[in-house]
C-alpha cells in the first residue's frame, strides 16, 4: 500500500484549502479505488521521476519561422535607414546575424573573407616576427601597425592590446607559445593558430589580405558580422551579402559528413536599428525603388 501515501497527502493538502468544508462528505474508501485505477493507466507517479527522465538538449533551440515577419532586402534597408536617421554614416553599420541549426558541442564555423565592399579597412594589425627579419619588413610595408617579438609579448602581458588582428610568422610560433599569451589574447580571439590561418610563412601577403577583410565566427549557434556601412546602396549590400552567404555555405560544405549545419534564419540589423528577418528576396511587390535608398542618410 505504498501507493496510497502520496494520494492521502494530496487530499490532506486539499483539506487546508477553501473546500475544506466538504471534506467530511467524501467517503475515504472511494479514494483508494480511484487511485488504483489511476495507476493502472500507467501514469508516472511523481513529478521527480518526470524530471529525471527529461534529456538535456544538445542542439540550440530553433523557433518556427512560420509566424515570423520577413522582409525583402530593400524593405529592411528602408526601415533601418529610418531608424538610423541623423547618425554618422561612417560609424553606424549594417550587421548580419545568421542563426544556424547546429549541435551545441560540435565544431564551430570560423573564417575570414574579403567583402566586395569592405566595411572597415583601418585595422591595427600586429605581426609577431623577429623585428630585423625580411618578413618583418614585408609586414611593415603591407601596413602592419606592430611588428616584433619580445616587445609585443611584454606589452600584451601588461594588458596593452591595441590591435584588432594578430598574425604570427611560422618561425616565431614556438617563442609565442612559450610566452604564454593565451590568457590575454585567447578571450579576444586574437591568439594566432594554424587552424585559423593566422600562422603563416608569407606574412606580408597575409597582412595585405587582412586589411579590408572581415572575420566571422559562430558563437552560440549564431554568426554575426558587419556587412556594410550605412551609406551603402542596396546593390552594394546585395553583393556583400551574397558573397558572405556563399563563403558561409562553402564553409558548411567543408565540414565532415557527420556534422550537419543548416542556415536557419538570416537577420539584418544595424547599430541602432531593429533586427529584421530577411526572406531572401531583393525587393517585394510594394517596396520603394532602390534608387531612393542610394542617397546620403
Amino acid at each position: 500500500m505504498a501507493n496510497t501515501r502520496p494520494l492521502v497527502a494530496q487530499w490532506s493538502r486539499l483539506g487546508n484549502s477553501s473546500i475544506a468544508a466538504c471534506k467530511a462528505d467524501i467517503p475515504r474508501p472511494a479514494l483508494v479505488s480511484y487511485q488504483t485505477v489511476r495507476h493502472a493507466s500507467g501514469k508516472p507517479a511523481s513529478k521527480d521521476k518526470d524530471k529525471k527522465k527529461r534529456k538535456t538538449r544538445n542542439t540550440f533551440r530553433q523557433y518556427d519561422l512560420k509566424h515570423a515577419m520577413q522582409f525583402s532586402l530593400i524593405d529592411a534597408m528602408h526601415y533601418i535607414r529610418a531608424f538610423e536617421v541623423g547618425q554618422n554614416p561612417a560609424s553606424a553599420k549594417y550587421e548580419m546575424h545568421i542563426r544556424l541549426s547546429t549541435l551545441k558541442n560540435g565544431p564551430v564555423i570560423r573564417n575570414r573573407l574579403r567583402l566586395p565592399h569592405p566595411v572597415k579597412t583601418d585595422f591595427r594589425i600586429c605581426v609577431i616576427a623577429p623585428p630585423d627579419s625580411k618578413a618583418a619588413a614585408d609586414a611593415r610595408a603591407a601596413g602592419a601597425a606592430l611588428v616584433g617579438e619580445d616587445d609585443i609579448f611584454e606589452q600584451v602581458k601588461n594588458g596593452v592590446v591595441d590591435f584588432e588582428r594578430c598574425i604570427c610568422h611560422t618561425d616565431s610560433l614556438q617563442k609565442l607559445n612559450k610566452a604564454g599569451l593565451g590568457r590575454f589574447l585567447g578571450p579576444k580571439g586574437l591568439m594566432p593558430s594554424a587552424k585559423t590561418g593566422t600562422v603563416v610563412k608569407d606574412v606580408g601577403n597575409a597582412v595585405k589580405n587582412m586589411v579590408g577583410g572581415s572575420e566571422y565566427r559562430e558563437r552560440m549557434g549564431v554568426i554575426r558580422m558587419a556587412v556594410g556601412q550605412l551609406g551603402f546602396t542596396p546593390d552594394e549590400m546585395q553583393r556583400n551579402i551574397t558573397s558572405f552567404m556563399d563563403t558561409l555555405k562553402k564553409d558548411i560544405a567543408q565540414l565532415s559528413d557527420r556534422i550537419t549545419k543548416d542556415i536557419h534564419e538570416v537577420v539584418l540589423s544595424s547599430t541602432h536599428g531593429p533586427g529584421l528577418t530577411l526572406n531572401g528576396e531583393f525587393k517585394s511587390a510594394n517596396s520603394i525603388p532602390p534608387k531612393e535608398l542610394a542617397g546620403p542618410l
Binding site: 554614416p89 569592405p118 579597412t121 550605412l230 551609406g231 542610394a294 546620403p296 542618410l297
Partner: peptide
C-alpha cells in the same frame, strides 16, 4: 551630385563624400 559620386568614387570603406555628407 549623389549619383555622380556614386559613379566616380569606388565603393570603399573609407568615408567618401557620398557616405559622409
Amino acid at each position: 551630385s549623389v549619383s555622380d559620386t556614386t559613379a566616380s568614387t569606388p565603393p570603399s570603406s573609407t568615408p567618401n563624400p557620398r557616405d559622409t555628407q
